[in-house]
Computed example of a mutant assay.
Amino acid sequence: MKRPAFVKAPVKALGWPGLAGLAALVLAVIAVVLSQRWDAQAVKLQAEARELRAKARPAAAAASAPVSVQQWQASLPPSSSRQQRLADLLELSIRLDLVGARTEHRLSTSEGLERMRVTMPLTGNYAQLRRFIGAALAHDPALSLDAVKLRRVSPMATDVDAELQWSLHGRAAP
């Protein structure tokens, strides 16, 4: 295959090293043009980030506003709702088809607050347990998950034996 004359002359005049240098020069020009675009995009994104941070500051300040102990205590459910809250927790585990052996609970009160510690041994697959924990915490804002112990009987088993320790927090009866 013959090369056209307009290709032969530059190749002959520059040689292969010259052509490689010319290609590098063209690539450098392309990189400069692209970097200018990228810099413009970066400036635009930084401006958007500053705007979002400015919007988020008031919300974060409101969320982190100090709450007095009395306000926090007043927001807790009364002791009269304790049995219903416990029943809701147990019902939720049943609705999600988690098999439970026996549930133990102990009540303690101190300085106008009560805490019912609930120990729930359950068996189910990992996804069921995650759904249960998420649903329980979403359902009762005064519920906390204190400990989780997971054990798989064998590496091939799909079910997991779990022991969940919850605390139902509330206001003690006066």
Score class of each variant (00 low, 15 high):
residue 87 A to G: 08
residue 2 K to M: 06
residue 152 R to H: 04
residue 74 A to W: 00
residue 65 A to N: 02
residue 89 L to T: 07
residue 76 L to D: 04
residue 57 R to K: 12
residue 4 P to E: 02
residue 40 A to H: 03
residue 115 R to G: 03
residue 102 R to K: 11
residue 75 S to Y: 01
residue 158 T to R: 14
residue 49 A to P: 01
residue 20 A to V: 13
residue 87 A to N: 11
residue 135 A to W: 05
residue 140 D to A: 06
residue 76 L to E: 08
residue 135 A to K: 07
residue 66 P to R: 10
residue 142 A to E: 03
residue 1 M to H: 12
residue 122 L to S: 03
residue 2 K to N: 11
residue 54 A to P: 02
residue 54 A to S: 15
residue 119 T to P: 01
residue 172 A to V: 03
residue 81 S to H: 07
residue 115 R to M: 10
residue 53 R to D: 12
residue 87 A to E: 09
residue 44 K to R: 15
residue 117 R to L: 10
residue 133 I to L: 09
residue 64 S to D: 08
residue 95 R to L: 08
residue 72 W to K: 01
residue 103 T to S: 10
residue 137 L to S: 01
residue 20 A to E: 14
residue 132 F to H: 09
residue 169 H to T: 05
residue 62 A to P: 04
residue 84 Q to M: 07
residue 142 A to S: 15
residue 76 L to G: 01
residue 160 V to D: 09
residue 95 R to M: 10
residue 104 E to F: 11
residue 171 R to C: 01
residue 112 G to K: 08
residue 172 A to G: 13
residue 71 Q to S: 12
residue 163 E to P: 02
residue 161 D to W: 06
residue 81 S to T: 13
residue 108 S to I: 07
residue 156 M to P: 00
residue 140 D to W: 05
residue 153 V to W: 09
residue 41 Q to R: 09
residue 91 E to A: 10
residue 151 R to C: 04
residue 14 L to V: 06
residue 149 K to N: 07
residue 156 M to S: 15
residue 147 A to C: 03
residue 41 Q to I: 06
residue 32 V to G: 03
residue 132 F to K: 05
residue 159 D to V: 10
residue 87 A to M: 04
residue 139 H to D: 09
residue 97 D to E: 14
residue 112 G to P: 12
residue 6 F to E: 13
residue 78 P to D: 00
residue 6 F to G: 03
residue 72 W to S: 03
residue 22 L to K: 08
